[in-house]
């Protein structure tokens, strides 16, 4: 499943880069993130609860911010599993400026397997996009305050 898009932040590129590299900001704003612990620089152990309506699952996994090229690019690599299934994927995150705003482009390829894929596939793409939207909105809000 491929998820692509971009989001604009009203701040300079370095500020946005710092925000997207801050463990606290990521932990606060990732939807359903219960814990995010840095095990070594750029590598995290994560526990995330994802749920829509009554369908909830807790996933444990590892996330890595790889190939960092500050303040322009990093690759988010992650995999995790839980009772409802597993999630594995990576996303290229590009930071650039359009003069006024910092544009964050994301291009993700995510594989989802197990029960949730068999039963929920019809809605997974949409739900992932929705959660990503929530994430960016919360990050933008944090930047404002």
């Amino acid at each position: 499943m491929k998820i692509k898009g971009n989001y604009k932040f009203k701040a300079d590129q370095q500020t946005v880069w710092d925000l997207f590299n801050s463990q606290e900001s990521l932990a606060r704003n990732l939807p359903g993130c219960e814990s995010l612990l840095e095990t070594e620089p750029g590598k995290y152990d994560a526990v995330v609860t994802i749920g829509v309506a009554g369908i909830k699952g807790t996933y444990e996994g590892k996330v890595e911010l790889a190939e960092p090229d500050p303040p322009n690019f990093y690759r988010l690599v992650g995999e995790g599993g839980g009772k409802p299934g597993f999630v594995k994927g990576e996303a290229a995150i590009k930071f650039s400026t359009d003069g006024q705003n910092t544009v964050v482009d994301y291009n993700a390829d995510v594989q989802i397997g197990g029960l949730i894929a068999g039963v929920g596939q019809r809605m997974l793409g949409g739900i992932s996009k929705m959660m990503l939207g929530q994430f960016f909105k919360k990050m933008a809000k944090e930047l404002k305050s």
Partner: peptide
């Protein structure tokens, strides 16, 4: 809808 989701253990009310 609910019972199939529960049987798959996706919903656990």
């Amino acid at each position: 809808s609910l019972i199939p989701l529960m049987n798959f253990r996706l919903a656990r009310p």
